[in-house]
Write a protein that binds this DNA or RNA. Sequence first.
DNA 1: GTATACCACGTACTATACTACTTGGTTTTA
DNA 2: TAAAACCAAGTAGTATAGTACGTGGTATAC
Lengths: 132, 132
Amino acid sequence: MKNITVGKLAKEAGINLETIRYYENINLMPKPKRTKSGYRVYSEIDLNRLRFIKNSQQLGFTLKEIKELLFLRIDEETTCNDLQKMAEHKIEEVNFKIKELNKIKKALKTLASQCNDQGPKSECPILENLES
Amino acid sequence: MKNITVGKLAKEAGINLETIRYYENINLMPKPKRTKSGYRVYSEIDLNRLRFIKNSQQLGFTLKEIKELLFLRIDEETTCNDLQKMAEHKIEEVNFKIKELNKIKKALKTLASQCNDQGPKSECPILENLES
DNA sequence: GTATACCACGTACTATACTACTTGGTTTTA
DNA sequence: TAAAACCAAGTAGTATAGTACGTGGTATAC
């Protein structure tokens, strides 16, 4: 890959051009070289970094966490254990969220099942529950 | 309950005083009567409304959805079926979220299990996966 | 009567992750 | 060469749900 400008990079990475500038502002992407006229100049390395960011997001990592992952990605002392730890911590978070959602689901199901379809709202268990 | 000011209402409802003003601004709470000096004056009805809002939030409803619930709460033509519909829709949303979270969890577990703890990052499946 | 607590409003900020727009310079295309 | 496409920066806005602060007026307690 030859050097490319930000619009081409955005297209290759499948993200919004403005997002790349945003990522640079929040230090998720390094400041790239520039042309004489001030255009940003990117390479394959930058494209790979954006793919890394995107894949990490799909695994539920926040931008803050991804910044950490990106550091571990280049740090010479990083072991597989470091990465594993981050994955395991994220798994715990996901488990908690699932647990909370199941609570909500259970409560909603209970209320919905107590509903008499055509009953007036004055006898609706959902309303009664929300007003207690 | 006699008429009370916003600070007392906030305390009774267990929410932040500023949040009540925020809810008024976004039309989640009606504009209350005022004293001569401009103080807001609230009653039991307002406290009940805030409790309704809070309980609805705990069931996963957004403020926007809660606004709708509050409308159904007072509309004369509302049936229990209307409320049931909203609950069922929220259940579907929750199910979708759980499904997405389980996907993430599965992917993370797979990656974490392939890790050789003390292995160098150059052989780490987590990194390899995130870079693809 | 005075100090303290309460209230009002408007503006701005927090968290998270973007996205859009204006103005003006540069590069590419026909 | 001119038009179209691209780029830059900075500001502001979106979504969602709040929270904090400064300035100044009012009510309560001692």
